[in-house]
Structures are given as structure tokens and as C-alpha cells.
Amino acid sequence: MTKVHSCRFKDIQKTIFMDQDKLLQIIKLSQNKDQKAFKKLVEHYQSYTFSLAFKLVCNEDDAKDIVQECFIRVWHHLRKFDLKTKFTTWLYKIVFNLSLDKIKVNKRRNNVLSVSENTAVLFEKLGGENLEKEVMNKDLAQIISSLAEELTPKQKAVFVLRDLQGAEIDEISEITSMSKGTVKSNLYYARLNIREKLEKIGNIKIKQHELR
């Protein structure tokens, strides 16, 4: 299983665990409108930000728009950021709000990706060993959006944050402005729905032996 970890994921991990002193210095400079420092901040966090936005809105162009809008907001509101708190939580909160707005707009436009017969094929890829090379952005968007198609935007957000981005319950509560109890019940309904979906696709039973 460890072989599956893609290079892209490692890059993002490196980004997340950036040296705290250096990060604080960059943030402080950016708070004083230092464009060079801010560029560093963007370079360090844009893929991290893009990852969450992409998994929430399941669309590359929309996710890029969100990242851009997110950093414009960061530039204008960074003075409000409390240096004692976790920067990524603050960043995620902005991405979460922007993504939720986008999801609502897309839902109104009925732009949701429909689950097609090749969704099952995509899920079979998840059982394979060399998926990093096979799963394209388009496929990943299809997988996540089909898994989460019946979820409310908040359930989807909690699922993505907890199960795909590995955020803690406390942090999710902070990002989504929901109580821990609400986060947990949203998470429960999301997982319940997704599991039923996976069973419906029939992927679990086919792949069970491969995973074991």
C-alpha cells in the first residue's frame, strides 16, 4: 500500500510541514504587504489549497479560481490572522467558504457530474497497484463527485476534510464553524451514504480479496 503514495502527495506533505519559524516570518512580512514574501506563501500553499478546493468542487478550473480568490482574500485580510493559530486551518476556512459557495452555484446550474457506467471502471482502478499514474484529475473528480453526489454540501465538506485531507475533528469544527457534535453526525451520514454507494457500485465485494 505504501508504494501507492504518489509524488504529488509527498510534495504537498512537504509543503504542509514547512518550518514554523520561516512560515511565521513570511506571514509577518506578507501582513506588511511584502509582495516577495507573499509570493513565497502562495508558492508554498497553492497546491495544498488547490487539493482541498478540487476535492470539494470536483472541477479543475473552478478549483483554480477558488485558489486565486482565496489568495486575494489572504492578501487583503492577512492582518486579521492570529499568528498564534494554525495557518493552514485559517487557509482551509477560506477555501471551505469559497468552495461551498461554488458548490451551491453549481447545484443551482445543475452542473453536477452524473454517475456513468465508467464510474465502476474508475473504482476498479482504485483496487489496482499503480493508480498514481492512471488516475487523472478528471477521473478523481468523477470518483469523488459520484461518491458524494447524494451528500449535502456540508456532509461532503466534512467527509473531504476528514477522510481525504486527514484534518482533525477540532480543526474541521473550526473550519466549518460547526460544533464537534455536528461535525461527527455529518461525518456519520456522509460515511453511511458513501459506503452504501460503494456497495451499490459493487466495488467492495469484487475488490475485497485484492485489498486483503
Partner: peptide, 18 residues
């Protein structure tokens, strides 16, 4: 649920490419 979790665990390792 365990089986479902394993698939989700795999999904977690896939990052979209910027």
C-alpha cells in the same frame, strides 16, 4: 465499513495535479 474505509484510504493518497 472496514472494506469501505480501505477504499477511502486509497482515495486519500491520490492528489489532484495542479
Amino acid at each position: 465499513v472496514e472494506s469501505s474505509n480501505k477504499i477511502i484510504q486509497k482515495l486519500k493518497t491520490i492528489e489532484p495535479e495542479l
